[in-house]
């Protein structure tokens, strides 16, 4: 029997190696399902999944929705770009409405850290975090882990560099926890103004020089640089960011031979990554998208029907 320790997926911090491995192995089975002519299995028939998106998202929402549909779940989307407070309805009221609709699982994205946790406290549904503030985005990190694992057959001992806005990136945080749990060595690199306070306490190597960070690494996961950050003065100009941190062909020479280029999307081509690198033969960026669906199917499958202990 395959059993995750928790009935929710709120983040990768504290998730065990066994649980991550179970998710990756299960993902393998779903990867096969989405290669079939009929890309659909009846597993979640009768299960209703709500995609509760308080932040605009296209990719993650579509990926989850496809995953749910391919598992034969009934899906409902609730999207709003404004927070519940601005909308005039409290989060608690929204949640109670959801509960009254007899939803089985909720996939939630919100700009505030801790909202997925909040949901677990006031409803019975299985909660999957699709991104909370700058805190965690566990399914994105899991698909990154799966993509690396499939390519190298292992995660243990690999050197992975995460480049970008470490301060505001939930993808980086989830990747740090997941990669470290699986035994990879993690390097973080970004402008000093975008490295959060006491970042070394994550237990990663921290660099502000991209060449030092890339030296001898196997995988480079390039994060999208939010252009608004520049307007807020976190770095002087786009041009300077590209010069100091952009991943280009020249810099790839520093990497190990069988290197991999990743990006969670959407890309700012020519800013954090050149097209040449993004479309190069070491890039697995589109593979990540496909794997994302399989990972989300695996997570939905493994959490579905999991009730409160003792029930």
């Amino acid at each position: 029997m395959g059993n995750l320790q928790s009935r929710h997926l709120l983040g990768l911090e504290g998730v065990s190696q066994e649980d991550i491995m179970l998710i990756l192995k299960t993902t393998d089975s779903f990867r096969e399902v989405i290669e079939r002519t009929i890309k659909k299995v009846p597993t979640l028939r009768g299960i209703t999944v709500l995609n509760l998106f308080y932040e605009p998202s296209t990719r993650t929402r579509i990926s989850f929705e496809l995953a749910e549909k391919r598992l034969s779940a009934d899906t409902i989307n609730f999207s709003t770009s404004t927070s519940s407070v601005k909308k005039g309805e409290s989060l608690r009221d929204t949640v109670q409405n959801i509960e009254a609709m007899k939803i089985d699982m909720v996939v939630v994205r919100h700009s505030s850290t801790g909202v997925p946790y909040y949901l677990t406290q006031c409803m019975d549904a299985n909660i999957i975090n699709a991104g909370d503030g700058a805190h965690e985005h566990p399914t994105q990190a899991l698909l990154d882990l799966y993509t690396i694992w499939k390519k190298y057959g292992k995660l243990d001992g690999l050197r992975v560099v995460l480049v970008g806005d470490v301060k505001h990136s939930r993808v980086i945080r989830s990747n740090i926890w997941g990669l470290k749990t699986m035994g990879a060595s993690v390097a973080l690199c970004g402008p000093a103004t975008l490295l959060p306070y006491e970042v070394e306490e994550f237990g990663c190597d921290v660099y502000t020089n991209i060449d030092e960070a890339l030296d001898g690494a196997d995988v480079v996961n390039v994060m999208r640089i939010q252009l608004e950050r520049q307007q807020l003065g976190m770095f002087p100009s786009r041009r300077e960011y590209t010069n100091l941190f952009g991943i280009n062909k020249e810099r790839l020479k520093l990497l190990n031979k069988n290197y991999t280029i990743m990006h969670p999307g959407p890309m700012n081509r020519g800013v954090e990554i050149t097209s040449e690198v993004a479309d190069g033969k070491h890039s697995v960026i589109l593979e990540q998208v496909t794997n994302g669906q399989a990972v989300r199917m695996a997570v939905l499958y493994l959490l579905s029907g999991r009730k409160e202990e003792g029930e």
Partner: peptide, 15 residues
Amino acid sequence: NESFQSTRLGMKGSP
């Protein structure tokens, strides 16, 4: 507070 806790939680810190 801005500390490793705010870093870990991705919350805006007040130093």
